[in-house]
Simulated assay, not measured.
Amino acid sequence: MRKLWVLLVGAFVMSVLAGCAESGEASKDDTVTLKVGAASVPHAEVLEYLSDDIANEGVKLEISILKDAVQTNQQTADGELDFNYFQHIPFLEQTNKESNLDLVSVGGIHIEPFGVYSKTIDSINDLPQNAEVAVPNDVVNFSRALLLFESNGLIELDDAKKNDFTIEDITKNEKNIQFIGVDSLLLVRSLDDVVASAINTNYALEGGYNPIEDALIIEGPESPYVNIIATTKEKEDDAAIQIVVKWLTSDKARKFFEEHYKGAVVPVF
Results as ranks from 00 to 15, higher is better:
184 S>Y: 10
143 S>K: 01
159 D>F: 06
108 G>E: 03
241 I>D: 10
240 A>K: 07
120 T>E: 05
260 H>K: 15
26 A>P: 00
87 Q>W: 03
132 E>R: 14
135 V>P: 07
217 I>D: 06
228 I>R: 06
220 G>K: 09
234 E>M: 12
158 D>N: 15
92 L>I: 04
269 F>V: 03
163 N>K: 13
266 V>T: 13
80 E>D: 15
238 D>L: 13
31 T>P: 01
166 T>K: 12
99 S>Y: 13
2 R>D: 14
39 A>N: 08
126 D>L: 10
200 N>M: 08
180 I>Y: 09
60 K>I: 02
146 L>S: 05
73 N>C: 14
266 V>H: 13
191 L>N: 04
39 A>F: 11
36 V>D: 04
64 S>K: 01
186 L>K: 13
80 E>F: 08
142 F>C: 01
236 E>T: 11
139 V>L: 08
135 V>Q: 04
225 Y>K: 12
9 V>D: 01
108 G>P: 01
76 T>Y: 02
69 A>D: 05
201 T>D: 09
192 D>I: 07
95 T>M: 11
151 S>P: 02
242 Q>T: 11
153 G>Y: 02
21 A>P: 00
66 L>C: 00
173 N>C: 09
81 L>D: 03
253 A>P: 01
56 N>Y: 07
17 L>G: 11
157 L>S: 14
269 F>M: 09
175 K>D: 02
235 K>N: 15
7 L>G: 06
146 L>W: 03
178 Q>H: 10
52 D>M: 13
106 V>R: 03
242 Q>F: 08
117 Y>M: 07
95 T>Q: 10
79 G>H: 10
96 N>S: 12
39 A>I: 03
234 E>R: 12
163 N>S: 15
200 N>P: 13
182 V>C: 15
164 D>Y: 07
175 K>S: 06
22 E>V: 07
167 I>A: 15
136 P>D: 05
58 G>M: 06
